[in-house]
Design a protein around this nucleic acid. Structure first.
Lengths: 192, 192
DNA sequence: CATCATACATACATAAATGTATGGTTAAAC
DNA sequence: GTTTAACCATACATTTATGTATGTATGATG
């Protein structure tokens, strides 16, 4: 039954959504293409039509996750905020809340943070994903540099180190969310 | 060739060490018992003698990792330090340095932090390991409570929240170590 | 020193997932 | 209105890991 162009694109999306669920439940390595296909309401034939293999599904998921984040930060950086550090804080909170809301994105994020060991067939993608990660780290750094040039930050402050610390704290928080399975209540008190 | 009691225990250790290597390289799910056996210089026969299956090797590794940490903290908590928060800071640094040194333990830690998705056969152990984690979290909390009762901390400080934050930061740091593969230089300047 | 249980190695049976090849149906192109 | 090719289902061959069953040599035990 030959489907229309839009229906074809829908099955592709269905397959990706199903992959997130199955990958999250059983891990990437233990997930079979048959499970993913059945979860999407199709057969393995459809999978092999849209993707080369399981690894390519994995790669497609990463692209679908990373892109919106970068766009979000880039758009936010355009704004001319009087207090860049407050802006950065708000961005972090916004990211947290976004993840809290979107279950799909949340699952995908946890998938790449926690459930991807980048071993075996996935090993080649470790460097690629790391580079993408470094890219968003540089975006974060720009907030701090903005604050520093605006004289809003101690002159001895090291933007690189601060960026690392923020990244560490947020990653650790995600880790705790995953471990405790309790949503953290973000107390949004003002900084000063 | 029947081995002596000590030799048998050595092959068991060899198998565990090999399992850490193989698990770290290829991930738990993708690792085969044959690889582990060969890396330890034996055959799968030895594996099935010492362990029920791959899951039990996984469990044995977790026990071997967690125990020394708990013992270390418990011993440290006995000491009567004048500044509990400094003591806690020193402990954190000590833990970091310990992991930096011991490659074996480092690999095992990364294995459980990053490479274990606790899916499939491993799912039942998620709660068990989480409970062990909570146990060490309570130990950390005792440092802060010590500081509070000693009047060394702000009365409004919430030990639970502070413990969570410290845990988040350390976990995030480990995550970054794994991702950047660059050893963090711990700046051990005094706090005040 | 005869026996037994330990500590493995080897062999096989089973299952399960992958890749590919092939078949079929129908949108789309002309 | 054909023809083509996209889109997917079905069938099969191959591989690979697992579990188990069995073989075997030796340290331990009386």
């Amino acid at each position: 039954m030959r489907r229309t162009k839009e229906e074809s694109e829908k099955t592709r999306e269905d397959l990706l959504n199903a992959a997130v669920r199955i990958f999250s439940e059983k891990g990437v390595a233990r997930s079979t293409l048959d499970e993913i296909a059945k979860a999407a309401g199709v057969t393995r034939g459809a999978v092999y039509w849209h993707f080369e293999n399981k690894t390519q599904i994995f790669e497609a998921l990463h692209e679908r996750l990373h892109r919106p984040f970068v766009d979000m930060i880039l758009e936010d950086l355009e704004k001319d905020h009087p207090e860049p550090m407050v802006q950065l804080r708000d961005l972090c909170i916004q990211i947290m809340l976004d993840i809290e809301k979107g279950k799909q994105r949340q699952q995908t994020l946890i998938l790449f943070f926690m459930k991807s060991d980048y071993s075996g067939d996935l090993a080649p993608y470790k460097d690629k994903h790391r580079e993408k990660k470094a890219e968003s780290m540089r975006l974060f750094k720009r907030y701090i540099e903005k604050a520093k040039t605006a004289g809003k930050l101690n002159t001895q402050a090291d933007p690189e180190l601060l960026t690392q610390c923020i990244s560490c704290f947020m990653k650790g928080t995600f880790l705790n969310i995953w471990i405790t399975r309790k949503a953290l209540i973000l107390k949004t008190k003002r900084l000063n």
